[in-house]
Simulated scan of single mutants.
Amino acid sequence: MHLVRGMLEGARAQGRAPEPLLRAAGIAPELLAVDSARVTSAQYIALFRALMMALNDEALGLLSRPIKRGGLELLTRSALGSRDLEAALRRVCLGFTVLQDDVHTELVREGALAGLVITAHPGTRPARFLHEFLLRVMWRLAAWLAGGSLKVQRFEFAFEQPAHVNDYGLVFPASLRFGQAHTAFWFDAKRLPRAFSRDEAAVRSFIASWPASVIAPKREREGMDARVRAQLQHHLQADERWPGLADIAQSLHVSAATLQRQLAASGTSWQALKDELRRDMAIARLATGLTHFATLADELGFSSAAAFQRAFKTWTGSPPGAYRARLLSEQG
């Protein structure tokens, strides 16, 4: 829940109660106190939108002055007409400096790498979540400017390694360095001189996808983990039965052993991907209906309702009954 808590920091600093914002996103406020609780991507995106509209601030109240709605579009449009990616990124850095007073953004080179560096101004102490948030926004914007993908070599953070560091791999898929003088992401400098080809139609499409394109972006490349998740969803749409490892391996034309090795190389496993999808489906079903736990357990491929309830508590920190009861009470 650290991401949800971080998103709410700006609103709380302005004296706003978080409960209405959480309810608007379909998140039970009580879950804020549960470290192991999880929310779906859809709920996370809904919370971002609720905060952005309530505060009229695309920086969610995390900066000393708001970036009013339209700020991201302004940054994006500032890059139009650039000759190459380097010129586009430098325009974006300059534009962001104009929009706020708390951090400085700069495109730099370090040997074979180029980096977009975020440095706090003297006398300011931006919240840790602001570093995470700005890094994600700038990276996804840079990826869009680069044509849709930009492989990062490493991410750097201007704070010490947090307790929830294991969650970072899902959001920042590269080498991580903490305790740095600045927050930054680094990529192959050979990308900088490539021609910039984004146009007005592309800008409109990118802005229309905000904030989902930043919070839950499509994968830059289809790794085996993404292919497995896609196959799981495909099987579930075509058949009520949950597929097994052998079924997915056959669909991908590899052996089960090869599939497991490739998933391990991606930093995940068959069970982890299966549980991730089951968790998201369970949360969505509990939030929208009164399905019996036995039925839900069967839909999610569990041997019994008790097995499902144990797994759900492991995933979210709350039993499914208590989780649904809180949702229903909050919804009135």
Rank of each mutant, 00 (worst) to 15 (best):
R5G: 10
Q14T: 07
A17C: 07
P18L: 00
E19L: 00
A24L: 04
A24K: 09
G26R: 11
A28W: 15
A33C: 03
A33Y: 05
F48Q: 07
A50S: 13
L51W: 10
L51T: 09
M52W: 04
M53L: 06
L55I: 06
L55Q: 01
S64I: 06
R65D: 13
R65E: 12
L72F: 12
E73F: 13
L80Q: 04
L80G: 02
G81I: 07
S82P: 01
S82M: 05
V92C: 06
T97L: 00
V98D: 06
Q100R: 07
L107W: 00
V108R: 02
R109A: 09
R109Y: 10
E110P: 13
A114Y: 00
R125A: 14
A127L: 11
L130D: 02
H131M: 02
E132A: 08
M138D: 00
M138S: 02
G148P: 10
R154N: 04
F155V: 07
E156W: 05
Q161R: 09
Q161W: 03
A163T: 10
V165E: 15
N166R: 09
L170E: 13
F172G: 12
F172E: 13
R177A: 14
Q180I: 10
F196H: 01
F196G: 04
D199E: 12
A202D: 14
V203T: 06
S205P: 08
I207H: 10
A208K: 13
A208R: 13
A208Y: 14
S213K: 06
I215R: 05
I215E: 11
E220I: 10
R241K: 08
R241W: 14
W242R: 00
P243F: 09
V254T: 13
S255V: 15
A256W: 11
A257V: 13
T258I: 13
Q262C: 07
Q262D: 05
A264H: 12
G267F: 05
G267H: 04
T268N: 08
R279W: 06
H292V: 07
L296N: 09
A297L: 03
D298G: 15
F302Y: 12
S303Q: 14
A311N: 08
A311T: 01
K313W: 10
T314R: 14
S318G: 05
P319I: 00
A322W: 15
A322R: 14
R326S: 08
